[in-house]
Design a protein around this nucleic acid. Sequence first.
RNA 1: UCCCCUGUAGCUCAGCUGGUAGAGCGGAUGACUGUUAAUCAUCAAGUCGUUGGUUCGAGUCCAACCGGGGGAGCCA
Length: 461
Amino acid sequence: MASRIRNILTMEPTEQTVTVEGWVKTKRDSKNLTFLEITDGSSFRGIQVIVDHDAEGTFDHLDAATTGSSVRIKGKLVASPGKNQSVEVQATQVDIIGEAPADSYPLQKKRHSFEFLREIAHLRPRTNTFGAVTRVRNALSFAIHRFFQEQGFMYIHTPIISASDCEGAGEMFQVTTLPMEKLPTQDGAVDYSRDFFGKQASLTVSGQLEAEIYALAMRDVYTFGPTFRAENSNTSRHLAEFWMIEPEMAFCTLEGDMELAEEFIKYILKYVLDHCPEDMDFFSKWIEKGVKESIQQVVDSKFQHVTYSKAVELLEKADRSFEYPIGWGEDLQSEHERYLTEEVFKGPVIVTDYPKEIKAFYMKLNEDNKTVRAMDVLVPRLGEIIGGSEREDHYDTLLKRIEEMNLNPEDYWWYLDLRRYGSVPHSGFGLGFERLVQYVTGMHNIRDVIPFPRTVKNAEF
RNA sequence: UCCCCUGUAGCUCAGCUGGUAGAGCGGAUGACUGUUAAUCAUCAAGUCGUUGGUUCGAGUCCAACCGGGGGAGCCA
């Protein structure tokens, strides 16, 4: 059985026979020699294969080994006299498995724009950048599960389809089997009692409320699943379908929440640095200068803490002007967040106790009756990476907040029930997975860190 | 949803005050004793996003529509 190229690259070259299976990245010919670089996605580097035209074997079909074609090559693993690799394969047999005609194969031996590559999302994982993104995304994903599992958290599969109307903010995608061209009506309105679920249903915009249910039984839980927002936002940071991580902990106040967030971030960043060094070097050199170092700095740092009120004070007396002026009660803009992390604290900082008006209804009210026990983790270069809070665990206060926000308490009956039966202080946070991948890789557009981006007016592939 | 930019060869782009299309890369062919996005030479390649308008004449000017990018809002 053939080894992955990643493994072959680490073998001692003792002229042993190896089999390489993969896709031709480049081919370079000279009179008697052909150089092939073969990749299989297992590592950033490919392996160089040398075909000596005078060697034993039939190599006259080598013309078909064009960029993008798939091959199986048997040969001897030897030390390379070339500069850029330590080992290479001297081919004794080359089989073309699948051709890729050079005059029509879209990927060339040159840089392509990300815009163009998005149009050929079925081929772009074969490029350096998307291979690296794919490996880093995988590593982050695994690191997240490993972190929570090591900490004893339970992975909860919260629903994708939500028939409860209480997820709050965000435009939702409706899920229905009703015939769109002939909707059943009752008194002029659509009769959802005849819909599949007997009521209006949507794709989830968050698993948090359901995660809370399980936290109040299993103590420490997390979700990691797809999330859907039907917002008409066309930016490099928004997707209609994205993945979100939401831990939730019972018997845990905001302090414990912040501790977990810091440990979590450092753990997963360190995991990527340890397991994808070549990919990170690539990003640091070609995509975002110094991204690897900036990630390392976060791993080595101690997160600072500051209240929202104090942060606003710092911003107000800042020795510079902002495009958006800041004042108590205003939400922090990206430029404010970056000033705090990059100029004031020179590292990650957690901002706490935001005005209740700019945060969600479920966040625990402080005694001042003005602020809530919310926390945002800010990191240099990006700004907010995590948003979380201690949840309101008092029935009366929560009910009052729901009413204050003009929400219907009936829609939240089960959420309120959690505060009636065995309520306990609990906390959690949320993290957008693609934004994390963006931050770690330095990729500028979120559409390039998910295999098949779904955005406004685009659901190709 | 709003503001700005943009759509020309397979890719990245140039194309002036309107006069009928050009470069690099890629591709094909050939040369080259180890290359690293190899190098050198030759050749082929375009319904100028779509529709309509102005004009003797539109890649160029105007309008609408459709893509793409950047920023804002919203948020993760």
